[in-house]
Write a protein that binds this DNA or RNA. Structure first.
Length: 477
RNA sequence: GGGGCAGUGGUCUAGCUUGGUUAUGACACCAGCCUAGGGCGCUGGUGGUCCUGGGUUCAAAUCCCAGCUGCCCCA
């Protein structure tokens, strides 16, 4: 069984993070660099995410399908920008047994190309549109930088949606609608406030017209991209020869979108909510919402019987529980274990509770303790909702303190370099300027707000040319 | 892509500088006792390719080289 976390979150974020995700039994390293093992506790969190998102996608008519893991090089290379963007990190299969393959096969870094090869066969008429398909799978990108459990791996669990529409407007609406689903998932399930926006020229997806993103604010003043949604325009329908006849018998290229969210969202949740005692899970995503901890001193059998009764009652109320009924460890051990695993509520049950027909309740977030009569046990449900809401509003407040508008070039550079703030400044948006900002500060533009805003100043914060919009800048995980 | 640091039962580690008996300790695990309201105590026990491969040597956890994995810094 795991022991406690021995690094403080504020002192060494990465060591702390690794210990939390490993010791809470969410994930583990494997023998292969960048390929993680997802243990039942971590995988269950992902399963709950899948469930939530899948029903959102289905609510707008998206259906699930499955496409091949391997993509022939000729197909992967059809769209020039796309292959240029992904080429450095593609893993290739070159052998079949002892025989060298005539054409090497890529492990999908993303499935636009292999899916659109099929789409070109399926789409003939405007009646075939829109085509709305998603797949839950994994993608492989051969990261050369450091890899990180959940946050940056070489094999990533995710979903990728790929939709085709008659008009650009429909496609753009779809990309934005899905982005809203992602935002709702982050906020409602993970209690993480995110900022929605679009990506700069340099940061957008290889082959996209526009990339929309949601980004979360981390405690070290980094930002992390939680999901992206792309308006692909006709950049893929042309090279892949996807065409349809409209009602006037005109042959047209359709407009496409692709969108994805990965298990990184779970890593971001650990980073944002976790503390020195370990994981802190929002009730909506937690595999167990309550840990029931019997104090097995006096009246052992009766206490256990009562704990069972409480457990059953909570399950009846739709609350997910785990009963720590082993008798070879102390209550303190069970409390600490529950805290490390991030379980939102601990319920202690001993002789006192038995006699007073009550339960003793402590929350994970503040360890606030209270006694609740058994007859009022449904109050636990309200408490879980309170915790969920508090976690989101607290995270939002924290995030807001880390973002600052900046007009001074000198301070802009200095603060980004030292990670003192996430900065919002007016910007020209050119790739050349972005390259220089990255070279000088280590930070990049994270997003440009979706709604038009008044410019913070007329000129670009960095190069001094005319500013086009405001943008958020930060280092990123 | 370049450089640096690290790797010892499940976990954390001593030993390495200066090669030499049976690889140290704690936690975890197993058995028994004990009965805990924030990691309970006692006794006994199981568990090791000292990351992998090669080299130096009479002798390698220890020195040298390469690789793998993790972490850090730079591009």
């Amino acid at each position: 069984m795991a022991e406690g976390i021995d690094v403080k979150k504020g002192e060494d974020l990465i060591s702390w993070y690794n210990q939390v995700v490993i010791k809470s039994e969410m994930v583990d390293f494997s023998a292969i660099k960048g390929f993680a093992v997802y243990r039942p506790y971590g995988y269950e969190i992902w399963e709950r995410s899948v469930q939530y998102l899948d029903s959102k996608f289905k609510s707008v008519g998206v259906r699930n399908a499955y496409f091949p893991l391997l993509i022939p090089e000729s197909i992967l290379s059809k769209e020039k920008e796309h292959i240029k963007g992904f080429n450095p990190e593609v893993a290739w299969v070159t052998m079949g047994g002892d025989t060298k393959l005539d054409e090497r096969l890529a492990l999908r870094p993303t499935s636009e190309t292999i899916m659109y090869d099929s789409y070109s066969k399926w789409i003939k008429s405007y009646r075939d549109l829109p085509l709305l398909i998603n797949q839950w799978n994994t993608m492989v990108r051969w990261e050369t930088k450091e890899t990180r459990l959940l946050l940056r791996g070489r094999e990533v669990l995710w979903q990728e949606g790929h939709c085709v529409f008659r008009t650009e407007e429909e496609a753009d609406n779809n990309a934005r609608e899905i982005l809203q689903f992602y935002k709702q998932y982050m906020e409602e399930m993970l209690a993480i406030p995110v900022i929605a926006g679009r990506k700069s020229e340099s940061e957008k997806f290889a082959g996209a017209v526009d990339t929309y993103t949601i980004e979360a604010v981390l405690s070290n003043n980094f930002m992390s991209q939680a999901a992206t949604s792309h308006n692909l325009g006709r950049n893929f329908s042309k090279p892949f020869d996807i065409k349809f006849l409209d009602e006037n018998n005109n042959l047209q290229y359709p407009f496409q979108t692709s969108w994805g969210i990965s298990m990184r969202s779970i890593g971001i949740m650990v980073l944002i909510h976790g503390d020195d005692k370990g994981l802190v899970l929002p009730p909506h995503i937690a595999p167990y919402q309550c840990a029931i901890i019997p104090i097995l001193k006096d009246e052992k059998d009766k206490v256990l019987e009562y704990a069972d009764k409480v457990n059953l009652k909570l399950n009846e109320l739709g609350i997910r529980t785990i009963l720590f009924n082993r008798d070879d460890v102390s209550p303190g051990w069970k409390l600490n274990d529950s805290d490390m695993k991030g379980i939102p509520i601990k319920i202690q049950i001993g002789k006192k509770e038995l006699e007073s027909d009550s339960i003793f309740v402590k929350t994970r977030i503040s360890n606030e303790a209270s006694s609740i009569a058994f007859s009022d046990i449904s109050k636990i449900k309200d408490k879980l909702e309170e915790i969920q809401n508090y976690m989101l509003s607290n995270a939002r407040e924290q995030a807001n303190h880390r973002i600052k508008e900046e007009k001074s070039r000198e301070k802009f550079i200095d603060q980004l370099k030292n990670n003192s703030y996430i900065l919002k400044s007016s910007w020209c948006g050119t790739p050349e300027c972005e390259d220089k900002i990255k070279a000088e500060t280590g930070a990049t533009s994270r997003l440009i707000p979706l709604e038009e805003e008044e410019l913070i100043s007329k000129d670009c914060i960095f190069c001094g040319n005319k500013a086009k919009f405001n943008a958020y800048f930060a280092k990123s995980y």
